[in-house]
């Protein structure tokens, strides 16, 4: 009964990691001896540090923005239980349907001063040319905006769902004790959904670390070359498919993977998210 999944797990969950481990040690053009030196070669690649910095800047903006806005919006949404609740939730998940290439198209138009529905706002900010926005230094902002736009709505709806699991008795008791909406949100609701927010934070972090599609598509279409090797995953991709250096590509992938696995283990064993599921830190 477990077998079909176990086969998929072994073939596409575990084996690729083992094989990548083996490939990462193979000889390369720069390092004919192979071995662990490949990992050092990747880090020493001139493209590595800039890409790593880009990803760090991206994460520093993306993860807190997601956590703060999603918490705030789901709490606000929870305070309006009337007939507008459902339409609002539906509106919030609309952007999640515009991912990948669609998101790139949308953002190209939204940020192009001559075409954008927000052209007045862009003009007010002194932006009259697309290339004032689409330039090397400002790319992280754009990619954060794109990733945020696709991801936030779904998470707002999910965390709104988490808020629904809080028992009425607790909220009623707080209200009787004279707590206002602000105090209830801050002192009661937020702490009660904290573990779901932590879980979300880890998932958002792990996904952000792997940012690929947005810079890759922008760079391949709208502004050629503007974001080549902008993220670590793009570098890994280019090592494999442009430089034919599968060993270094696998090495870089493994490094990113290790960070994700560590994050996963932290959330499983150090947070109370999986409490009660038989594996968490507390039972």
């Amino acid at each position: 009964m477990f077998a079909p999944y176990l086969i998929l797990l072994a073939l596409f969950g575990v084996w690729p990691i083992v094989q990548a481990g083996l490939v990462s040690l193979e000889p390369t053009v720069i390092n004919p001896a192979g071995g662990a030196q490949n990992f050092a070669d990747v880090v020493a690649d001139v493209r590595f540090v800039p890409a790593a910095l880009n990803v760090v800047v991206f994460l520093v903006m993306y993860v807190p923005a997601m956590l703060i806005v999603v918490s705030l919006m789901s709490l606000l949404l929870d305070t309006v239980q009337g007939r507008w609740n459902l339409p609002l939730r539906l509106a919030y998940i609309v952007p999640a349907s515009m991912t990948g290439a669609t998101a790139v198209l949308i953002w190209y138009f939204m940020l192009e001063p001559s075409l954008s529905p927000y052209q007045d706002a862009l003009h007010a900010l002194g932006i009259t040319q697309g290339n004032q926005i689409w330039r090397q230094g400002g790319l992280a902002w754009i990619f954060v905006a794109m990733a945020f736009f696709v991801g936030a709505g779904n998470w707002i709806v999910v965390q709104y769902g988490s808020l629904q699991s809080i028992s009425d008795d607790i909220l009623e008791a707080a209200r009787i004790d004279g707590a206002n909406s602000w105090q209830i949100a801050w002192r009661i609701k937020l702490p009660l959904i904290r573990k779901y927010l932590v879980y979300m934070g880890i998932l958002v972090f792990a996904a952000g670390l792997q940012v690929f599609v947005e810079p890759q598509l922008i760079s391949g279409s709208v502004y050629t070359g503007i974001a080549t090797d902008w993220s670590l995953n793009q570098l890994s991709y280019d090592l494999a498919f442009q430089s034919n250096n599968l060993a270094d590509s696998a090495a870089l992938s493994l490094m990113l993977l290790v960070v994700c696995i560590v994050a996963a283990i932290v959330v499983i064993f150090r947070s109370d998210f999986f409490e009660g599921t038989g594996v968490g830190s507390k039972k």
Binding site: L9, F12, W15, P16, N233, L257, A264, I265, I268, V279
Partner: peptide, 21 residues
């Protein structure tokens, strides 16, 4: 536990290893 770890790792992280395989 392996399932939980796999669930937290974004699928993108395995793309290059999967290509190799």
């Amino acid at each position: 536990i392996i399932t939980l770890v796999a669930m937290i790792i974004p699928p993108v992280a395995l793309v290059v290893p999967l290509f190799v395989e």
